[in-house]
């Protein structure tokens, strides 16, 4: 068989269009022609390398730029984290304020572990001392509004911290 014919069959194989008979012909010839085997191997290797070519990527802010151009605001992970944080905080406050369960549970744990009671006494002493020191500054010791103010500040804190981190990531990229 002529080399030209073999070259045609190799091209057909690379085209994924080779028939069974043609494949048999090709294999038969390759078994006895080292020159064609080398050509066949090089062509197959080139095809394999082409398939495995590196995938390149645009810059990291590419998605954000496309979304901005489309008028879609990108919702960053930290924005979602702020919502989850706020929700958890609110749920925890409502649970502790309106449910008798936490107090009952804590007192049961505290009375069953004497070491915890001693620790609680010490902490209470520290808090009482601090309250004494701070009471001239803070006129009302506790208001139901305080947790909500704290909540608002915490959300703002998480939000701006996330934004600052985002900026840092962009700078590094």
């Amino acid at each position: 068989m002529k080399h030209k014919e073999i070259e045609r069959l190799i091209q057909k194989k690379l085209d994924r269009e080779i028939g069974l008979d043609e494949k048999r012909k090709l294999d038969k010839h390759l078994a006895q022609c080292p020159e064609c085997v080398l050509y066949y191997q090089e062509m197959m290797q080139a095809s394999k390398s082409l398939r495995e070519l590196t995938e390149f990527y645009p810059q990291t802010d590419f998605n954000a730029r496309v979304l901005a151009k489309l008028g879609l605001r990108r919702r960053f992970a930290w924005t979602k984290a702020a919502y989850v944080f706020a929700g958890s905080w609110l749920a925890a406050i409502l649970f502790f304020v309106y449910s008798p369960l936490p107090a009952q549970f804590l007192s049961r744990v505290a009375t069953s572990v004497p070491a915890l009671m001693r620790l609680y006494d010490k902490v209470e002493l520290v808090i009482a001392s601090l309250t004494q020191v701070l009471s001239p500054v803070i006129k009302s010791s506790f208001s139901t509004l305080n947790p909500f103010i704290g909540l608002a500040f915490s959300i703002m804190f998480v939000y701006f911290l996330g934004k600052a981190l985002q900026k840092e990531v962009k700078c590094k990229a």
Binding site: F56, Y57, P58, F62, N63, L67, L72, R73, R74
Partner: peptide, 16 residues
């Protein structure tokens, strides 16, 4: 917006 992101992430490497 998240569907846009998914399409971008699926194809931007190939197209680029």
């Amino acid at each position: 917006e998240s569907a846009c992101q998914k399409i971008l992430n699926l194809y931007k490497g190939r197209i680029f």
